[in-house]
Write a protein that binds this DNA or RNA. Structure first.
Lengths: 195, 195
DNA sequence: CCCACATCGAACCGATCGGTACCATCTCCC
DNA sequence: GGGAGATGGTACCGATCGGTTCGATGTGGG
């Protein structure tokens, strides 16, 4: 066993902890809203440890965004699959999950999109594009299974609804009404495509 | 005439020029992406002038956002009114104008929403909420004139489409397809409300 | 037992941050 | 022509930025 699996000084475990803590504070305060010093204080690690694991603040940010994209997409995919085979039920489940998300106290919009807004340079921009592509694939899949006349178009429209609802929930309504509005719009669009 | 109306050293004109130049660079680089020194260099003014007119960088940012919100809302309202009385034509015109916007080389999403994403404190957040309210009023007006069954709901859904298209155009498609997709969705929603 | 390794805490680096002060210059109005 | 006010340029301020380095501490496996 080349990799030590001890409980206390396990680099992998440390890295995972740093990633989790950094994800929270970077989301809550913004990428430029918290310096490395405070970041270290918050995650309970020294600068040296942080830089050994991630190389730079941008490296940490990239790792955080990558992990978060994976997590969120997996989370939504699970919610859709758990809703059974009916596309309408799947859409309903998806937007209900979003409503739960919007209701959470620290909700500040989509972390990946927010990051790309703050840093419009390759790492963040690329990740955001990929993130939206993943969303699109999930939504287009639902449109296809629903027998929509133009599943690709409907998938893109559902993506617009999802992102729009997230923005509106973040910056407009404190309520989660945006998710409900988007859900009804999604179902109406699906119906208008004969599905 | 208590206020000097000279051509050269006119504070009002200076302020307007600073505002216009600052709007561009702050939008292009992000609120935290450009320092006050570089900002002054870009707008061709000294620090003292900038601080005399706006008090602080945040003061400048607030003035920029306020002016931009006014301008954009006025711009969209004009496009809607120029399309004549037919609500469907008005919606079409609105999303066509958005498509033009998305196509512009320096497009980086909605400046006000972006700002609120970067600074989730009172000035920016409040302005973003008001900005979305103005959009909502414009869109709900269209929904009402179209005779929609639930104009308030439809107005909120159109707002979600507008903001969603803006986000997708910014972070996903380099194409302006998002505006066309949203337009079709908007018309379909309008139809599904019997209008 | 001991050495390799992970970690912490703090000092330190140059650069840049937002903001202030000072002064020479220019333009306008009287 | 002279004085008031707006401006540009620059030096400067303390604070913070991202990042590096070093020594002390503690843990684990051989």
């Amino acid at each position: 066993m080349p990799v030590p699996k001890g409980t206390a000084l396990d680099p992998d475990r440390t890295r995972a902890t740093l990633l989790a803590s950094a994800t929270e504070i970077l989301y809550a305060r913004g990428l430029d809203g918290v310096g490395v010093a405070e970041l270290c204080r918050a995650v309970g690690a020294s600068k040296e440890t942080l830089y050994r694991h991630f190389g730079s603040k941008d490296g940490l940010v990239e790792a955080v965004l990558e992990a978060r994209s994976d997590r969120v997409v997996h989370w939504l995919t699970e919610a859709v699959e758990a809703a059974g085979p009916d596309p309408r039920a799947q859409l309903t489940a998806l937007f209900d999950v979003l409503a739960d998300w919007y209701r959470q106290p620290g909700f500040r919009g989509c972390a990946i999109v927010n990051a790309a807004t703050q840093r419009h340079t390759p790492p963040a921009r690329t990740l955001a594009d990929r993130h939206l592509s993943r969303y699109g694939a999930l939504l287009t899949g639902i449109a296809e299974r629903a027998g929509a006349r133009e599943p690709a178009l409907l998938g893109r429209q559902l993506l617009i609804l999802l992102e729009g609802a997230t923005v509106v929930a973040d910056h407009h309504d404190p309520h989660d009404r945006a998710a409900e509005d988007a859900k009804q719009a999604a179902l109406a669009l699906l119906s208008s495509q004969g599905a």
